[in-house]
Design a protein around this nucleic acid. Structure first.
Length: 493
RNA sequence: GCGCCCGUCGUCUAGGCCGGUCUAGGACACCACCCUUUCACGGUGGUAACACGGGUUCGAAUCCCGUCGGGCGUACCA
């Protein structure tokens, strides 16, 4: 059975790159009818928070990514790790290093200054097992290190890069550290490479799918797999998600309010989970042919690891927006209405005093012009409130036409005579009037549009008027006609 | 610096393993036109790419080498 996992560290929100990693792991499990595990990598107690865990879980649920097991918390699995560490010590695969942090920092700095790569060269490796154990028993602080072979290479079998193309020299890996400093009685918290390996192995993970930034960690993990006698999973390293050619990182925070890097930030702007999943899946994965719009179920069907791309992908905001706009137009209207309501209320529009059918029609009217839910309130605002002003460029261009005020009053008079207030019945007299005067419909429609909405652009005018109601329509038209001389005086030429 | 990864239109990508069918296809963005009461949607068309240099070959985007460029890593973070 295929078993995958997503293993975030709870040190912030779930960002879009992480969401993609989670999605691909989840898709692979679902595609194969396998199991998807959620594991929280909270061994760094300094940085981990419960709030972060909650937010990550929330974001995953919002995206529709569910898990079959977990969430497991590594901070609760310490005995397991220490047990395996003791096994490794008995086999002498690891050894305790007694150097202090200060000594190590100095050694690293020295290597840096000499422009060499830092590799641990402490003397603890040479201690006899018995001698080391004596110091352990005496309570000396130490950290475990891996007894890495001094020569040879570690090959990293990799889905996208081949079985033996990626390899690391042991001499450059060195005797890396396994856990934070501690004592025999009070062992220090183990570090990422170790807990990750132990958990993946113990949880039966068959496919490790993670970001490419972990490629360098993999040889160390392979060393653990071997020492512990665990079979190797299949490793797949996803190309990075870039933003402006830099790795998209949660450490960048949501710097630009329009383009949050967090999943929750996108949700709050009115991006859809459907669009997010679809768009993010196209970053580094493709389907043969030209298909780019996928439902989650289609993704589950189509997703295979060998269609993954090797090169990093830049996050294109325009395309994301476009996808979102597509879902805006193609998701069921009731879904959109339901999701739009909170945004409309938050904008202070009194939507709840309106009939549900009216609201539905109002939203339907603007939907194909919208790309984000957050854009909706501004797009329907004039249906609730009279315009507080008129677009300056419209005042100049539309209200500036000869005889517009008179035309508006004529239109108002015509509309007063419309008994059946439906868009067809509204359109007819206006269209006839335009013909009679020998002018295009636009010559009448544009001034009315500006008078009624305050803007030069809106959905179909007659639909807008229908929703607005006859009284409001006529009041606004007459009011505008009256205001035109003053408006033009204030905005000459 | 060192290690690792990557390199097709501005961006996401197809094609590359199995060289000719690629005068390099699609999508987003952009431009023009059509539709039209405005905006948008939709439709049609257009601009635009195989990083560079060698090699192998009758023939290379596709295979090999080098160069250059970009990214990631280089923690008692994950």
């Amino acid at each position: 059975m295929v078993v995958t996992r997503f293993a975030p560290s709870p040190t912030g929100f779930l960002h879009l790159g992480g969401a993609r990693t989670a999605l691909f792991s989840w898709l692979w499990a679902r595609h194969n009818g396998g199991k998807f595990i959620l594991r929280i990598e909270d061994t760094d107690v300094q940085r981990s928070t419960d709030a972060s865990t909650d937010q990550i879980l929330d974001s995953l649920r919002w995206l529709g990514i569910d898990w079959d097991e977990g969430p497991y918390f590594q901070s609760q699995r310490l005995p397991i790790y220490h047990d395996h560490l003791r096994q490794l010590w008995e086999k002498d695969a690891i050894y305790p290093a007694f150097e202090s942090k200060e000594e190590l920092d100095a050694a690293r700095k020295e290597a840096e200054d000499a422009k060499r790569e830092y590799v641990y060269t402490g003397t603890s490796r040479g201690l006899s097992h018995a001698e080391a154990q004596r110091r352990l028993d005496a309570g000396e602080p130490f950290a475990w290190r891996f007894r890495t072979p001094t020569e040879g290479f570690i090959e990293v079998p990799e889905t996208l890069r081949g079985d033996n193309d990626v390899k690391f020299a042991c001499s450059e890996i060195g005797d890396f550290i396994i856990n934070r400093i501690g004592t025999w009685e009070n062992p220090g918290m183990p570090l990422y490479n170790f807990v990750c390996t132990v958990d993946d192995a113990l949880m039966g993970v068959t496919h490790v799918i993670r970001g490419e930034e972990h490629l360098n960690n993999t040889p160390k993990q392979i060393l653990f797999y071997r020492a512990l006698g665990f079979p190797l999973p299949t490793f797949t390293h996803l190309p990075l998600v870039l933003k402006n050619n830099k790795k998209m990182s949660k450490r960048d925070a949501d710097a630009d309010a329009r383009f949050p890097v967090s999943v929750s930030g996108r949700r709050d702007l009115g991006y859809f989970p459907e669009a997010t999943v679809n768009f993010v899946a196209m970053l580094g994965w493709s389907f043969p042919g030209d298909k780019e719009l996928f439902t989650v179920n289609e993704l589950v069907d189509a997703f295979v690891l060998d269609r993954l791309v090797k090169s990093a992908a830049n996050f294109d905001e325009d395309k994301y927006l476009h996808h979102n706009g597509w879902y805006m137009r193609n998701l069921p209207l009731d879904t959109i209405v339901e999701r739009a309501l909170p945004f409309i209320r938050a904008a202070g529009l009194d939507v709840d005093s309106r009939p549900a059918e009216w609201t539905r029609a109002a939203i339907a009217l603007v939907i194909e012009r919208m790309r984000l839910l957050a854009e909706i309130p501004a797009a329907i605002e004039y249906l609730f409130n009279e315009p507080t002003g008129y677009e300056p460029k419209g005042v100049k261009k539309v209200f500036g036409e000869e005889g517009v005020a008179a035309l508006l009053n004529e239109a108002a008079g015509l509309l007063e005579g419309v008994s059946d207030w439906r868009k067809e019945a509204i359109e007819e007299p206006l269209r006839l009037h335009a013909e009679a005067r020998g002018i295009g419909l636009g010559k009448i429609a544009q001034p009315i549009r500006l008078a009624v909405t305050g803007r030069t652009a809106s959905p179909g005018l007659f639909e807008v008027l229908e929703l607005l109601g006859r009284d409001q329509t006529i009041i606004r038209i007459r009011r505008a006609a009256e205001a035109i001389p003053a408006l033009l005086a204030a905005n000459p030429g």
